[in-house]
């Protein structure tokens, strides 16, 4: 769906009505364009995820080569100076590399995410040029990870629900300890007294229980 937005303008609006008759070939090229753009988008997303998960340098180098000329052109247009445009490239791509783990493919395309970083950076640079101010406000105005209040609590609830569901799958001894510590907020000593076991046993049950919960969540996410 999003691809329609990124089609060159003339494809959408500027085609003469007469040529809409017998456009079988046109449609084919059209479909090919769309398919190619999808491939391109998938390639960008794959590269971004490789950077986020494995800090993959080759993938970053690919993104850098892809976006560098475009960011530079944007910078030249806004900041009107070769040196500043290259600063914008450097600052933007540095954030892409150092904040890659904040990228969430469910929330938008790689292009939109990198645009956000670039626009925020450019906003601060423009203020630096115009007002001689060293403030960094861009990322406050347009947050990089889209955790608004509502969505935050939503994902939190989802995660809690998922955790609770897996909690039931734990062996009783481990479940008692995890529930006692995290839901009834008992201390390890209080739990040891209540269950009449040494505190060392509480510690090891807690560790085993948490490890198991973690592995449930990880396999679930794959």
């Amino acid at each position: 769906m999003e691809n329609i937005q990124s089609l060159p303008e003339q494809n959408r609006y500027h085609r003469p009505i007469s040529s809409q008759i017998g456009t079988a070939m046109d449609n084919e090229t059209h479909a090919k364009d769309l398919a190619e753009q999808q491939v391109e988008m998938d390639r960008l997303t794959a590269a971004m995820l490789q950077i986020a998960n494995q800090r993959d340098k080759a993938a970053f180098s690919y993104l850098f080569t892809h976006f560098m000329p475009k960011i530079r052109a944007f910078g030249l247009q806004r900041l009107n100076q070769q040196g500043l445009a290259m600063d914008l490239v450097q600052e933007t791509m540095t954030s892409v590399w150092t904040k890659a783990h904040l990228y969430n493919a469910d929330k938008g395309s790689v292009t939109t995410w990198i645009f956000t970083i670039m626009r925020n950076q450019c906003f601060d640079m423009l203020r630096r040029v115009q007002h001689n101010k060293e403030d960094v406000f861009g990322d406050d105005i347009w947050p990089l990870c889209d955790t608004t209040m509502a969505q935050d609590t939503l994902t939190d609830h989802k995660l809690t629900a998922k955790l609770l569901q897996h909690l039931d799958a734990l062996p009783l001894a481990q479940r008692q300890v995890v529930q006692g510590i995290y839901m009834q907020e008992l201390t390890q000593q209080e739990l040891a007294d209540a269950l009449k076991v040494p505190i060392g046993t509480i510690k090891s049950r807690l560790r085993l229980g948490l490890e198991k919960l973690k592995s449930f969540l990880e396999t679930h996410n794959d």
Partner: peptide, 8 residues
């Protein structure tokens, strides 16, 4: 805006 500025 992103697609306009950085469109592949």
């Amino acid at each position: 805006a992103a697609n306009l500025a950085l469109n592949p």
